[in-house]
Amino acid sequence: MANPLAGVYAARHRLKESHPLTVLIVERLGLSLLLLWAVSVLIFAGIEALPGDFAQTYLGQSATPQSIANIRADLGLDRPITTRYFEWLGGVVQGDFGNSWASGAPVTEQITKRLGNSLFLAFFAAAISVPLAVGLGMVAVHYRNRIPDRVINILSLAAISLPEFFIGYLLIVFFAVQLGVATFPSTVYDGMPWSERMAAIALPTATLVMVVLAHMMRMTRAAIISVMSSAYMETAELKGLGAFKAIVKHAAPNAIAPIVNVVALNLAYLVVGVVVVEVVFVYPGMGQYMVDAVTVRDMPVVQACGLIFAAVYILLNMVADLVAIIANPRLRHPR
């Protein structure tokens, strides 16, 4: 008698042996979808559990039990929660997030514009912070435990220790108020000239860069140092390779996976974590849209924003995982 489960295990094992990459990618995709669905349940349930009520907030002083009930009936709030959830989910998978309760306009339309603004900001923050972080990380490794390394470390620690709204206000005080070289508030609108738009996003971009830079820089430094101490780097040195060549050819390919991981995590933060920064700078992105919606209990908007943030987060993490997997020769070239 053999182990009854051995056959099942063995079949999965064989598939993993022959096509490890395909199996892993399919697994990751499946997991991401599952996770997104779980998040949608959480968001819906969480918002349902929030105290306060749209009708109450909307009507304010003039609320009577009858008018509140009327509004609730108009919005369909008198139906069971599961019915409303699946109705909402059905719309979402078709790209329809419903209509805003406050304005009555379709949420999808609004969000597209707002998301565009947020991504615009995140893109510039990323374009500056990622190369800067990786570059500073390499400089720190090169001058390891010497003054440049220490300075980079202390400054980045300081930046990471301050809350982003505080950094934001500091920048506003110095550059907008005292020196008067920067634009505040950072409100952008359609048809705004390119140069004005860039001037408007300068300060929020700088704030975001400072927030994410330290994390990525320190991770890059750690990843490269860990690779540098491995035996194959000694082999490279004993082959007579120069230090620079050894780093580019032998260290870099092995340091990619951890660096990409932390970069992706921070990119996700750039999109998701902008809520506070957008509010500080009065920037019309997703973050501010969501905060406004929460104050008036405009649930379809809050739900849509929450779900999109979650999707961005999951997507970027999945991409990071996949890059790390693809960068691993053990998975690319099975035995």
């Binding site: 035996a231 490279a236 032998h250 092995n254």
Partner: peptide, 15 residues
Amino acid sequence: CYVAQSAAASFNPAH
């Protein structure tokens, strides 16, 4: 030239 004890660690896994 040098031959190390642990060839497994001394070869670069990426090449």
